[in-house]
Amino acid sequence: MTPLTALTALCPPPAAVPPAPDWSQVEDSLGTGLPQDYKDLITAYGPGQFCGFITLYQPHAPSEWADLTGPMPARLRGQIEQVRQTARHPWPLPHPPENLFAMGVTGNGDYLFWVTQPADTPDEWTVAVNEALRAPWFAYDGSLTEFLVSVLSGTTTVPMFPTDLLDHAPAFTPSALESSTPTTPGRPSVSTRTIRDWANANGYDLPERGRIPSEIIDAWKQQNPN
């Protein structure tokens, strides 16, 4: 059984999916090949969310916040070292920023990256996850599709993911592409660390890890409209 077959059995794709992009054009625009499992995954599922939480970047998405071929992957790569160096106690990076290619995001602002080594063999790329470009990092030694199968089956636990992620059966919800981070058009992405710090300072009982309730995000937006 291939990883995609295992994923579709665990989490069925939608009956109707938008046409797949021209992958040769996508790869030409990126200047790099892409893992075949990712191309098969996007072709099978289209845009949407796994468990209402994990969103994969798509080629030529209408929102730059979720566009694999837009500025977001390069922007995040450039911010990784900047965020680390401005921390009070800089943490070690598991991989050089130039070897990290952002390809997904969660509802809590955890970013999913490919570790692009070897650069010319994308089918060997593995997965790294972290929260808002800060420590800790979580490494998965396998493909993106294998990562999703392992996480959605409960075989792999990602420390920064909410503990209630699998309280209901795994599901994929098709949707128009939007960023899963709490942003508005034209507004820079805001880290979950910022929202957590604000919530704790304003009397909310918010655990250090897990999904941030929508009412807290809404309250933060009301207090921080710009």
Score class of each variant (00 low, 15 high):
Gly107His: 09
Met1Leu: 11
Asp40Phe: 00
Asp37His: 12
Ser63Cys: 11
Thr5Lys: 12
Trp23Glu: 02
Gln82Ser: 13
Pro3Ser: 14
Ile80His: 00
Leu4Gly: 04
Gln117Val: 07
Arg84Lys: 13
Asp110Gly: 02
Pro73Val: 14
Ala15Val: 06
Pro35Asn: 08
Thr2Cys: 05
Tyr45Asp: 04
Ser29Arg: 14
Glu124Gln: 13
Thr106Leu: 05
Trp65Tyr: 15
His89Arg: 10
Tyr111Cys: 10
Val83Pro: 01
Pro21Phe: 09
Tyr57Val: 00
Pro21Lys: 11
Asp22Glu: 14
Thr43Leu: 00
Asp40Trp: 05
Phe113Leu: 07
Leu112Gln: 01
Ala87Pro: 00
Leu68Lys: 10
Gln36Asp: 14
Leu76Ala: 01
His89Cys: 01
Pro73Lys: 12
Gly70Met: 08
Asp123Met: 05
Leu112Ile: 14
Thr126Ser: 15
Ser24Trp: 00
Ala16Tyr: 02
Glu81Leu: 13
His60Cys: 08
Thr55Trp: 10
Cys51Asp: 09
Arg88Thr: 10
Leu7Glu: 06
Trp23His: 04
Arg75Trp: 11
Cys11Val: 13
Gly31Arg: 10
Phe101Val: 03
Tyr38Lys: 06
Pro14Val: 06
Tyr45Phe: 10
Ala119Phe: 08
Pro35Ser: 06
Pro59Arg: 12
Met72Ser: 05
Pro71Arg: 10
Pro92Tyr: 06
Asn99Val: 00
Asp67Cys: 15
Gly33Glu: 11
Pro59Val: 14
Ala87Gly: 01
Gly107Asp: 11
Thr121Asn: 08
Ala44Thr: 15
Glu27Leu: 06
Ser63Tyr: 02
Thr55Gln: 14
Leu93Lys: 02
Leu56Asp: 03
Val17Trp: 09
Trp23Met: 03
His60Gln: 14
Pro97Asp: 05
Glu98Lys: 02
Pro21Asn: 07
Pro14Tyr: 03
Pro92Met: 02
Pro59Ile: 11
Pro122Gly: 00
His89Leu: 06
Ala6Phe: 01
Asp123Gln: 04
Gly31Thr: 09
Gly33Arg: 14
Gly52Gln: 12
Ile80Asp: 01
Thr55Asp: 12
Trp91Ile: 02
Glu64Thr: 12
Arg84Leu: 08
Thr121Ala: 08
Arg75Glu: 10
Gln58Val: 13
Leu10Glu: 13
Val105Gln: 09
Gln79His: 04
Glu124Tyr: 01
Gln117Pro: 00
Pro12Val: 02
Asp123Tyr: 05
Pro47Gln: 09
Thr121Met: 02
Pro59His: 08
Pro12Gln: 04
Gly78Lys: 06
Gln85Lys: 12
Val17Met: 09
Ala61Gln: 07
Ala16Met: 07
